[in-house]
């Protein structure tokens, strides 16, 4: 039993608490009894074969997916079907998608200021200053006036990260952020994520970038068929996997 599981059982509250979460897509049982507690500032990498429910798990944390049984509490706010709670959680939790999902009809700057202006009710000038600061952080301030269609995949994903950061979230969720990128662009996105991790933001990242997991993660979680099979510190996880399924998975993705 890891320190985190103990923390969950002794009732010590992390920033994200998932207790006995179950979810079905029709007949298909995607999440089975998920118990997960994430502390403030923790970096977690979730991996597992496709269809194992890892994306669904992090999408439950900002209510992009509903769950049928169990409980999720984010920063003290229980995620029920109360719209007020959902809004409160979503404005504290940033999310980066595999397909970037930038708004193609808005410039990069407008993509970044949209939510601060309409959700946080920040004056436009202030929102733009924040946006320029974060564009600088992801190293593309010169692209502010362009439209997403004019940028490369790597640049678009960095804009997407900056867009989430403009809401000053407490937690960042990454759903396979580098899977849709050409190989030479993966590094520029990972570099931004590593820098972000070093600043102490809480991160949950679904990825198969095992190098990233080794450098950044405090904990690696392995999921299969809707269950959390194994979780451990990266060194232990990679060098000494406990379950057979984890061993098989690691041998498949690390073999070449």
């Amino acid at each position: 039993m890891t320190a985190h599981e103990m923390a969950a059982e002794t009732g010590q509250h992390g920033i994200i608490q998932m207790l006995g979460v179950n979810k079905w897509f029709g007949e298909f049982h995607v999440l089975r009894d998920i118990n997960l507690s994430v502390d403030q500032g923790e970096k977690i990498v979730i991996c597992g074969p496709s269809g194992s429910g890892k994306s669904t798990l992090i999408r439950c944390i900002n209510a992009l997916e509903e769950y049928q049984r169990g409980q999720i509490i984010v920063d003290g706010v229980p995620l029920t079907n109360n719209l007020k709670n959902i809004d409160a959680v979503r404005s504290e939790v940033g999310m980066v998608f595999q397909q970037f999902n930038l708004f193609p009809h808005l410039t990069v700057l407008e993509n970044l200021t949209l939510a601060p202006i309409w959700v946080r009710k920040v004056p436009k000038r202030e929102a733009e200053e924040t946006a320029m600061y974060f564009l600088g952080r992801v190293k593309i301030p010169e692209q502010a006036a362009k439209y997403p269609g004019q940028l490369s995949g790597g640049q678009q994903q960095r804009v997407a990260i900056a867009r989430s950061l403009c809401m000053r979230p407490k937690v960042m969720l990454f759903d396979e952020p580098t899977s849709a990128l050409d190989p030479e662009m993966i590094k520029e996105v990972l570099d931004v994520m590593i820098e972000l991790a070093n600043e102490g933001i809480t991160m949950l990242c679904v990825t198969h970038e095992m190098g990233f997991a080794r450098t950044v993660a405090n904990r690696v979680i392995f999921m299969d068929r809707g269950q959390i099979i194994e979780q451990n510190e990266p060194e232990e996880f990679f060098n000494n996997p406990q379950s057979e399924r984890t061993q098989l998975f690691l041998s498949q993705i690390l073999s070449h």
């Binding site: 809004d87 998608f97 999902n101 708004f103 939510a115 959700v119 997407a160």
Partner: peptide, 23 residues
């Protein structure tokens, strides 16, 4: 309009009406 647009806007905390109107 791909559903990803709605998801991205919702994930930023925009309400349903604003998602429809702005995105």
């Amino acid at each position: 309009v791909s559903y990803g647009q709605t998801e991205a806007a919702s994930a930023l905390g925009l309400r349903k009406g604003l998602v429809l109107r702005l995105v």
